[in-house]
Design a protein around this nucleic acid. Structure first.
Lengths: 151, 151
DNA sequence: CTCCTTGCAAAATATTTGCAAGTAG
DNA sequence: CTACTTGCAAATATTTTGCAAGGAG
């Protein structure tokens, strides 16, 4: 239907280099805006649009991952090792799982209306320590919560 | 830190009844706007804000699920049986898995920076039949894709 | 009657895009 | 030089919210 790819996009600009470098320093899986705030300290004139465009390019070229995880805001990760994540249901922060659980096998999976099943994703939900310290009863959070914002 | 809950929200209005009724008819896991378009055929003066407010209320009161699944747009599901989903990486549509895979055990999971691990989520990605019919080589989709929009 | 709920519009949030100017190769 | 990239601003897209009027119990 549509063509595979658009523009070459190969030039290593200062903006692209700094975005990638700062993302690689972080283990916090920042949002585009969080990364923009960091990069801006080194490149004060950079725009948020440039950060978005470069994050898209870096994702498509396989240099970083756009985290396909629940929540309103996309997050990015320069760690390309396959790994799983926990997401804080209060604040949306994400941490890595260092001892991955086994992913379910997909080879026998058949779903009506789907031509291909390509992969599985396992993720976890929890309450981060920072948020837990604000909650009277963190265990109750799983019952009474808004996605992305615990009451 | 903050209180548990806000307003009682107990009145069964016509809008709320129709929203719930139409969502229950659907197996398509619609977005708020998709459901709004459907409900509007029966209640032409309903507003999108009312749909959002009722979806929030119905979610918080446990009558429906807000699907915490990858993608930009939230989707809703009146099927409260625990079940898993496949998401089409092309168009974002979601289908149910009728033969659920085993969820990983979380009781032994410890993650630095997280006070509680509450639950796991397993989801799948694939290409729906409609999108597959538009792609020359659906198997290539997993390599070259934008989240939510395959090239 | 009370106050929860709605419609409407504006605001808030997140992301994308058009365009002229800038710059990597 | 060429054309990929950027900064800026405006446009989209999604979701939330203030407020006066409406309606369920």
């Amino acid at each position: 239907m549509s063509e595979l790819h658009h523009q070459p996009q190969t030039r290593m600009t200062q903006q692209r280099a700094v975005i990638l470098e700062e993302l690689r320093k972080l283990k916090t899986h920042p949002t585009a805006d969080e990364l923009y705030q960091i990069v801006r300290q080194r490149l004060p004139r950079i725009s948020l649009g440039t950060v978005y465009r470069n994050l898209l390019f870096l994702t498509e070229s396989g240099q970083i991952s756009k985290l396909e995880i629940a929540g309103n805001t996309n997050r990015f990760d320069a760690n390309m090792e396959p790994h799983q994540h926990v997401r804080c249901i209060c604040c949306g922060s994400i941490a890595d799982i260092h001892t991955p659980v086994r992913e379910p096998a997909i080879d026998k999976l058949r779903v009506q209306g789907f031509a291909r099943i390509l992969r599985s994703r396992v993720e976890f939900e929890g309450v981060c320590e920072q948020c837990a310290s604000h909650l009277a009863n963190p265990d109750a959070a799983v019952v009474y919560y808004h996605p992305d914002k615990v009451v």
